[in-house]
Design a protein around this nucleic acid. Structure first.
Ligand SMILES: [Zn+2]
Ligand SMILES: [Zn+2]
Ligand SMILES: [Zn+2]
Ligand SMILES: [Zn+2]
Lengths: 132, 132
DNA sequence: TTACACAATGTTATAATATAACAAATTATT
DNA sequence: AATAATTTGTTATATTATAACATTGTGTAA
C-alpha cells in the first residue's frame, strides 16, 4: 500500500470545519462540532489534526493550543510559519511576507545549527481593538 | 502595600530550580522537585511561573510547554524571544542576536497592526545530533 | 496599635489538552 | 483468497492548567 496522498474521511471532516472557521479552533471544540459526523473520541480528532499539520493544510497556534487553516499557498508543509495575534480579540492572521520568510529561512547563528523549520508568533492589538 | 518588586519565596524557589537546569523544565517536573521545599500544589508552581515569565526571568517554550531561565540580560520582560530547539535531543538555546531582534521588533506588515511582542522558535538538529 | 486593605499563599477540586494501548475494519498488493 | 499495511474505533489514562475559596502575612492609616 502506498503512503496516502489524499485525505481520509476523518481528515477531510476536520479540515472542512477548520477551513470554514474564520478563527483558530481548539481540539475539543472541533471534537464537539464533528460528533454529528461520527467522530466520537479526542484521538480521532488529534490524529486528523496531526496529519493535517504535517502536510501543511492547517497550522497550530502554539501559544493558544488552537488550529487554523493555512491561507498561504506556499505552505506545502508547516515548516515556516508566522502569525499575528491580537491579544484582545484573539484574531489570528497568517503572515505571508516573502521578505520575512526569506530572512528567517536563511537565518544562521554561530551555534552551528542548521534550521529546517521555524514558527513565529507576533502579538499586539489589531486595528479594531486599538481604536477602542 | 506596594506592588511587589522582589521575588516572593515561592517564586525564588521555582526560579532557583529553573536556573540550575541546563534544559527546559515542565511544570509538573518543577512541582515534583520543589515539593521538598513546601510547594505542594500545581497552582503554587503555575503562579510562580506566571510571575517569572511576566518579569522576564524565565521564558516559556510554547511548542514544548516547558520553561527555561532567561540567559539574556536584555530580557527585562519576555516580549521579544527567540529560541533554537533541537528536534532530536530537545536541547533549547535562547538566541541572542541583535540583528534578528532588531529586524523582528521593527517588523511591520500591511495589517495595520503594531506588534509589541513576539516569540520565535527555530527547529533543527544541533551539532551533536547532526553528526550521529 | 489596631483595624483595614490587599497581596501572597494554601488547598481542594476540576477543566482542558493530549496520548497510550489495543482491537477492529478497511484498503492495497501478491 | 491470503497477506500486509493503514486507518479507524474504543477505553482508559496521562499531562497541562485554572477556578474557587479559605487563610495567612504585611504594609498603611486612623
Ligand atoms: Zn500556511
Ligand atoms: Zn483585536
Ligand atoms: Zn531572555
Ligand atoms: Zn540535539
Amino acid at each position: 500500500m502506498q503512503k496516502q496522498n489524499f485525505l481520509t474521511k476523518n481528515q477531510q471532516i476536520v479540515l472542512d470545519l477548520v477551513e470554514k472557521s474564520s478563527q483558530p479552533l481548539k481540539a475539543y471544540s472541533i471534537l464537539f462540532n464533528v460528533q454529528k459526523k461520527g467522530l466520537k473520541a479526542p484521538l480521532q480528532v488529534y490524529r486528523a489534526l496531526d496529519k493535517l499539520v504535517e502536510i501543511g493544510k492547517i497550522h497550530k497556534i502554539e501559544s493558544r493550543n488552537a488550529f487554523v487553516a493555512c491561507k498561504n499557498s506556499n505552505c506545502v508543509v508547516s515548516n515556516a510559519t508566522a502569525f499575528s495575534i491580537c491579544e484582545s480579540c484573539e484574531k489570528v492572521t497568517e503572515i505571508n511576507n516573502s521578505k520575512l520568510s526569506k530572512y528567517l529561512s536563511n537565518f544562521e547563528d554561530n551555534s552551528g545549527m542548521k534550521y529546517n523549520k521555524y514558527n513565529l508568533e507576533f502579538f499586539g492589538l489589531c486595528k479594531k481593538c486599538k481604536n477602542k
